[in-house]
Every structure is written in structure tokens, then in C-alpha cells.
Design a binder for these strands. Structure first.
Length: 153
DNA sequence: GCCAACGTTGGC
DNA sequence: GCCAACGTTGGC
């Protein structure tokens, strides 16, 4: 059992959108490191910190879980999609995705509050210049995030 | 909109 | 295989 942080732009898929859907195929990841995490390391039941990025209030917005192992992201084959990849073929898919199920919406745990928490100082998402949309989260960090989420802001 | 940081591409 | 140029991410 592992833990992850997954970024989503609320303008695309917010935690509310994710909760409304039964499962969310995590299409559109076009970064090899993030793909490899999904393809090689994600297992059904893994915990996911649902993070809102590129928005007015970036931060943790909910909790989710991984509900499938990796399979080809079909948007790579769709010429009409902005995620289309002409170099990808059905025999040799380049991009993979997993299905995510939202568990609950939480209060917004914003970046300043996360940065203020010493126990989270090594979180990848807080590192300067970190742009990776999928990050491993340690069990210790997960616990701290859960505790912060249950606290009043 | 700005810009720092990072990833990818492509010429050599 | 190097590295400059370019594109993207994402906080501010």
C-alpha cells in the first residue's frame, strides 16, 4: 500500500467533479516520470491526496484512491484530442493511466499551511520548481496531511 | 501576465 | 551525447 499526491486543475476536474463521477480515468498525463509511477508503482487501494493546482487557492482538496492498475490512455490515439500523440500506436501505447475514485472532499489545505508544517518539508509538491503532477507521498506525510485536514484551519 | 524551473526536442 | 532553444507547469 502506497500513497500518492495527484494534481488536478479544478477548472478541468475538481474534487466535486471527481466525487460526482463514479471513477475518474486519469487521462492526459504526458510526463514520463508521472506515467512510470502509474504504470509501475500504483496498485489498487493506494491512497491519493487530491490536489488542486493552477488555481486561485492551490492545495489539498480531498482524498481519493486508486481503483485500477495502469492501462493505455485512449486520448493519445484521438487526433481530435489535445492529448493526441502521433507517435503512439495501439501496439505500442506510450501513455498510460489509472482510474481514481474520490473518497471525500476535505477542507482546503492550502500551500502556506503545508509549508508551515515542518513534518511536510520534504514533500515533493512543496519543493521549489516541482512540476510533477503525480508524486509519491510517504506514510508519515500521509498521516500528517490527514491530521491537518481534520483540524480546523 | 510574469517568470523560474524543469522537460523535451533536435541540430551538430 | 551535448546543449541551446523551445514549450509547459504552476505559484504568485
Amino acid at each position: 500500500m502506497q500513497y500518492w499526491l495527484m494534481k488536478s486543475e479544478p477548472g478541468e476536474v475538481s474534487i466535486d467533479d471527481a466525487l460526482a463521477a463514479k471513477t475518474n480515468p486519469w487521462f492526459g498525463v504526458r510526463n514520463y516520470q508521472a506515467r512510470n509511477f502509474m504504470r509501475d508503482n500504483m496498485r489498487v487501494g493506494d491512497g491519493v491526496v487530491f490536489y488542486h493546482s493552477s488555481c486561485a487557492e492551490p492545495g489539498v482538496a480531498g482524498i481519493a484512491e486508486v481503483v485500477s492498475t495502469a492501462y493505455p490512455d485512449d486520448t493519445q490515439f484521438d487526433a481530435a484530442s489535445k492529448y493526441f500523440d502521433p507517435k503512439a500506436t495501439a501496439e505500442n501505447p506510450r501513455w498510460m493511466m489509472v482510474d481514481i475514485k474520490a473518497i471525500r472532499k476535505t477542507r482546503l489545505l492550502g500551500l502556506p499551511e503545508m509549508r508551515a508544517c515542518e513534518a511536510l518539508s520534504d514533500m515533493v509538491v512543496l519543493k521549489k520548481g516541482s512540476r510533477l503532477s503525480i508524486n509519491p507521498v510517504t506514510a508519515a506525510e500521509w498521516k500528517v496531511v490527514m491530521r491537518l485536514l481534520d483540524k480546523k484551519a
